[in-house]
């Protein structure tokens, strides 16, 4: 899981800040700023490190500009005082820009995870392990429960996923029912053809 890799990496990093800085400096700016898994990982890690004051935001900004990148495209910055967030009045509280492109497209088949989400409150039990179709993409949002995992805001792409009634409730389900859920990218996995369905009680 991405989150576990993050935590382990950071735990190993705290005593090796300079090594990490050098590693950042060696990164090809195109890779750093591209819409890639690595870009998202780096964005999340950066947020974590800035919050823990391992790296100052200004240092990273300077380096990105030096490399020809656009500072505004970097993943969400944590606030200076993580326990008090200044919201603009009438502002979009939860929305955040995300560097990386969404993994899924409308029309794509996905499966809601059935395990590995301990402590996450936003995937109802009835949908776990079930297959659905992406019907909308809502850009990036603060990932709920991320603070509990020491990840700060950790913005993620949000999708509306449509589940057929029979998929959720079996053959006895009422006819012609579709249930739509708004699910974060880490809750989903792509459906591989011929992948066996998990039988949930």
């Amino acid at each position: 899981m991405f989150q576990m890799v993050n935590a382990a990496f950071v735990a190993g990093l705290i005593g090796n800040v300079d090594q990490f800085r050098h590693a950042i400096e060696r990164i090809d700016p195109a890779a750093y700023l591209s819409d890639s898994y690595f870009g998202r990982w780096l964005g999340g890690l950066e947020t974590l490190l800035v919050e823990r004051e391992v790296i100052r935001t200004a240092e990273l900004n300077d380096r990105v500009e030096e490399l020809g990148g656009a500072v505004s495209r970097i993943a969400a910055r944590p606030s200076a005082t993580p326990d008090r967030v200044a919201y603009p009045p009438g502002g979009r509280h939860g929305q955040r820009p995300i560097l990386a492109a969404p993994l899924y497209q409308p029309g794509q088949r996905v499966r809601a995870l059935s395990r590995g989400l301990a402590g996450h409150t936003r995937l109802p039990q009835y949908a776990r392990g079930r297959d659905g179709i992406i019907v909308a993409w809502h850009d990036g949002w603060v990932y709920p429960d991320s603070n509990a995992h020491g990840l700060g805001e950790y913005p993620q792409h949000l999708y509306t996923v449509c589940f057929e009634g029979k998929e959720l409730w079996g053959e006895d389900a009422e006819p012609g029912i579709r249930v739509h859920l708004d699910l974060f990218e880490p809750y989903l996995e792509p459906v591989v053809p011929d992948q066996p369905e998990q039988d949930e009680p």
Binding site: H93, G94, Q95, R122, L123, P124, H138, W141, P144, L158, T160, E174, P175, G176, I177, R178, V179, H180, L181, D182, L183, F184
Partner: peptide, 15 residues
């Protein structure tokens, strides 16, 4: 009508 599709929207996030 049984032919009419029912769509349920479960507001599980900020939308």
């Amino acid at each position: 009508n049984p032919d009419r599709e029912v769509r349920v929207w479960d507001s599980s996030a900020e939308v």
